[in-house]
Each structure stands twice: as C-alpha cells, then as structure tokens.
Design a protein around this nucleic acid. Sequence first.
RNA 1: GCCGAAGUGGCUCAGUGGUAGAGCAAUUCACUCGUAAUGAAUAGGUCGUGAGUUCAAUCCUCACCUUCGGCUCCA
Length: 634
Amino acid sequence: MKITLKDGSVIEYAAPKRAIDIAADISPGLARNAMAAIVNGEDRDLRFLIEDDAELELVQFDSAAGAHAFHHSSAHLLAQAVQHLYPGVKFAIGPAIDNGFYYDFEFAEPIGLEDLEKIEAEMRRIVKQDIPIERYTLSRSEALQWAKDNDETYKIELISALPEDETISFYKQGDFTDLCAGPHLMSTGQIKAIKLTSLAGAYWRGDEKNKMLTRIYGTSFPKKSDLDQYLELLEEAKKRDHRKLGREMQLFAFMDEGPGFPFFLPKGMVLKNTLMDYWRQVHKRYEYQEVSTPIMLSQKLWENSGHWEHYRENMYISQIDGEDFAIKPMNCPGSMLIFKSEQHSYRDLPLRMAEVGLVHRHEKSGVLHGLMRVRAFNQDDAHIFMTLDQIADEVEQVVHLIDEVYRHFNFKYHVELSTRPEDSMGSDEEWDRATTALSNVLDKLEIPYIINEGDGAFYGPKIDFHLEDSIGRTWQCGTIQLDFQMPRRFELEYIGADGERHLPIVIHRVAFGSIERFIGILIEHYAGKFPFWLAPVQVKILSVSQAVEDYALDVLSELKTNGIRAEIDVRDEKIGFKVRQAQMEKVPYSLIVGQKEAETGTVSVRVLDQGEAGSLSLTELLDKLHAENSRGNS
RNA sequence: GCCGAAGUGGCUCAGUGGUAGAGCAAUUCACUCGUAAUGAAUAGGUCGUGAGUUCAAUCCUCACCUUCGGCUCCA
C-alpha cells in the first residue's frame, strides 16, 4: 500500500501498519511529538491501523486537531484522577475546548477550589506512571450493559441516544474506562504540564431544566514553558480587564442602584463622544441620514413588529395613562414608523436611516459583565430601505463600511453567516432568498465565512463580524441583517417607476454593535493606552516648581484654545512623582515645563511608554498634536 | 434565572464571638525640587442590607442585594 504524506512524499508498505509506526519510520521525534493522525481527511488515533492506500497527516500540538486530541486525553486524565479520589462519582461528558478541556461530574458531596490542587496532584501521579491508553469497541447493547453495570446514568443516556447499529469505541487507561469517539494520545505520560483553572456549575446537556453538574476546567500543554506562557496571557488579560481600567481611569462605573446600567463619568463621556464624532464622519461620507426615535412606545407597536411574540421576556413594560407601553429593546420599529410617515418614490431608495438608539433589554442577572453585557446600551443602528435589486450593492457597501471602521482600530476580524432560527417569522422561501443574497455578497467579495446554523434574528438571516483584539480574543460586534418581514408587517411601500406600490426590503445593521461593549473592547485592546485622538486626556502639563506655574498655565490655555484635551499638575510635588502619576494615568503626552522651558517658550515632551522625546516650541508642539488628532478623522 | 465564591474607609487587602487595622489615595504643613514614589501630621469605616442565635455579632445561622467565575442567553 502507498501512504501519501502531507508534503506529497510517498512511502510504500507491504503490510498494514499503524499510524504511530509510520511516524516512527519517518523520525523518532515525530513519533514522540505526534498527537493524532488525519487519515484521508478523518481524525484518527495514532494507533489506527492503515490497511490501504491512504493520505496521512501526523498532527502535533501546534495544529488544532493535535491540540484537540491532547486536551481530550487530558480530560480523561482528569476523570481518572477524580475517580481515584472520589469513588462513586458519576461521569457526564469531558470534551476538549479552545485552550484546554473540561469534564462534568456529579459528585456526592460538593467540592471546593482547594480540592483542585489534590486532583491536580493525582493527575501528575498518573502522568508519571505513563499508563498506556488503549482503544476497543463494543456494540451498542454491550456498551449499554457496561454503563448499567457501572451505574453510569449519564453514559446510559448518551449511549441510548446513538443509533441501534452503532459500534461504540472505548478508551481505557489503567483502571479508568470511558466511552469516547477519540482520537486520544498513546499514553498518559505525554501530558507534561497541567493546570486546573476553575470550578463551575453546568447543566447536563446545557439545558437549565436539567440537573446542575460540577464542571472542572483545566488546560494542559506538552511543555511546561507553554503552560507558563499561557498563564502569562491570562495575567495579561486580567491587567487589561476593562472593569478594572474603567474604574482606575474614571471612565465609567456601576452602582448597586442600577445593576447592569452603566454610568459614564466625564472622561468616559469624552471617549464616547470622540468615538461618535468619528462614527458620524464615516456615516456622513457613506450617505446616511441620522434620526432619533422614542425610548418608549405603545405595546400595540411591539405586537405589530413581532417583538411582543418573539422578544417579550427581554422587554421592560410600563404604563402611560392606563395604556401598556414598552421600553424599546431594538430601534427598528421606530425607524419603520418614520419611513411610513411619508410617501416614498423609488428615487428615494436606497434610504439609509441611522440611529444611535438607547435600547434596554432585560438580561438575566447572572450574565451581566461590565460594559460587555449590560441592560441598557446604545446601538449604532441603521436601517436601509431599498428595492429587491439594490440588496447586493447595499450589503456590499455595508461590508465595506464595517471593514473600514475595524481597520481604523487595527482589528482583524472574521465573518459568520447565521441562518433561520426555530423561533422566527416568515416563509422558508423568503428566508432562502435572503440567506442566499447575503452569502452571494460574501462570495463575490471573496470573504471566507463560517455558517452559524439557526442563529439568525427572528426576522431575518445575518452576517456577523467577530473582531479579534490585540491579545487574540474574539468579540461579536457588527451585524448585517436582511429583513423581508418587518416592512410587510408595517405595510411599508414605495411608488415604483411603474407607478405601482411596492414593498421595500430592509437591512438592519450595526458597526460597533453596542457603543458600550465596543468601548469595553477598545479598553482591553489598547490596555487603556488609547491612541492620541481617542484619549480622554491627551496631554498633561507638569511643572517642575512653583516658580513656573504661570508659564505652565499659559501652555495649558494655549492647548485648550487649540482643541487639545489637556490637564495640568502644578502641585507642590517633585517632578518624578508627577511623571510617574501621569504615566500611570496612561496620558499619551506629558509636557515637562521648568525654568529652561519658560525662558525659551518650549516644552519638554515625554511620550507614554517611550520616555523623553526632546524639546519643542509651542508652535511645533501644536502642529504635531494636530497631525496626531487628524487620525481620528475618517 | 441556576451552580460555586466573595462583599471590611475612595482603591488594594489584613483581622477577631468582647463594637476594627495596613499600604496607596485624600487633606494640612515643611521642602522649591528636572523625567516612574520627599518627609511629617490629620481626617475618614454603624465591617453590603434585614432578621435570628448569644450576656455580647463585622465574625455563627437564615433571607435579600450586589459583584466575581461558569451554565444558559446575547450587541
């Protein structure tokens, strides 16, 4: 048989051979570092016996498939350790996830964080023993018998859900056996670096009606140094936490009196307004009109829009003069009413109506998270009313706009296409048409995307933009949603070239998504060190001694007159102390002024994280700052 | 909402069944200073809220509120 490797080379064997043995033939290092095999495109064990001509890829930890096998075996290792320490525990599921693994257990007695260390120690002990991992298969009925014999209620349920004729694979390492599709490592000895990271409750099968199990999260690496590097990344993320920086930099706050409702402090407001100035410039250039619609509207409107039926549990309800009203969770119905308030010609279309609207949504208390998940937020919303044949051009233009905005902040991003959810309105035919329209645009622009089955809005499919921040985390921000339903429900119309009434199509779209969340992401992306144009305080003037206070104040007023956001520190403190404080406040430029500067009409410039940058005259300084500020223009 | 953890001066955190401390910050004073912490003094807390146990509760018990880590959900 012929084995074709990834690099195109071919090895021939007279008899069937296991993937691991082929790896050993290629090099001992590969045999040692390989985690799994991909045979003819399918994920397999290294112990998989290749019997015919095949394409073979041997994957190591640096590939997704290799890491997956490694983490998956780590999950089994965790389960084995738990079995040793807590006899009688019941096992649910234990998959690999990004950056690690978890396993769900049903413990007889609750365990605490201090137990994790014990479990970790037991895991290390099993690793030292270097126990071989073996694979075998059983028929469905044999597997079921195994689960019943061991009183594994969750496994019984898992096996019962499989087809009758299914052959089920098992993995056994010493005294621990688990049913599992694999692939798995050859032996426990390969898992050199382990860290159990957290303990959490999780519902069986993710359904809140089911029993709550105990989930143990962990991460693992083939090398200790890789684990350390990962733990450092977690530390870095902690330092960047927008909740911590938001408080330290006095940007926003949360109060017990309004859980999930952010308060913006003066500096946070400067940030927000600067961001919105940029946003308005972009949208003016893309020919959007801006509107504003009420926060509270009659319940009848929400019944008409479908929100009452599909979105009610997230809405805040109130009454005015005995009539039921709801606080808007979305901006669209308001915009529909504006469109409807006038007669439109096909010549008006596409009509791009933007609204930075404040929406309120009742989120469950457990999901609130700083600015990332709040109960009141501003959406940089827009509704584009258009004809059927304008769909492609308009969607394309929105894709360009979002791309431009993300690039402005140096974000990379990827795109997902979400299709019809179960709870939705409209006909299959319209959903197909809308979904195809979106995918056609992505195909035309050659933008790769993954499909998110059943994750669309209740009124239409959507393109989601997931941006990636400076330390590699992704966040969903922009979306483009195509809607045939709302225009019909609101009986929108325009007069076509033929003089007849026609139904317009609507695009709902956001670029930032939520201004609040976007600000949270920016804080973490920049670690609080905003680019000059966006920084709430751009310049801080530090006087060396009281003798130059007057000059320092002159510099301040000159900067302010020129539209620079400047602060001054003329306290009776040493210059080193003031410099330190200004750096910790993450102000982009510190201007040190002393006797020398006062006499020559200059300032000594210090750049955040870079140090001293020489002296400039006031005119030179203003030129420089104006140039920097213009980066905030679109 | 559910599981687990936490809540002590503006911030970070000690601490004890006999009504509380530290560092930073703040205020005042002295120093008048050249690029990441000058020194001293002062002030500031009914220990998240409510109830219970106790001679006595910040500490033990219960309920509630908020926050944190997850689950589910999501911009």
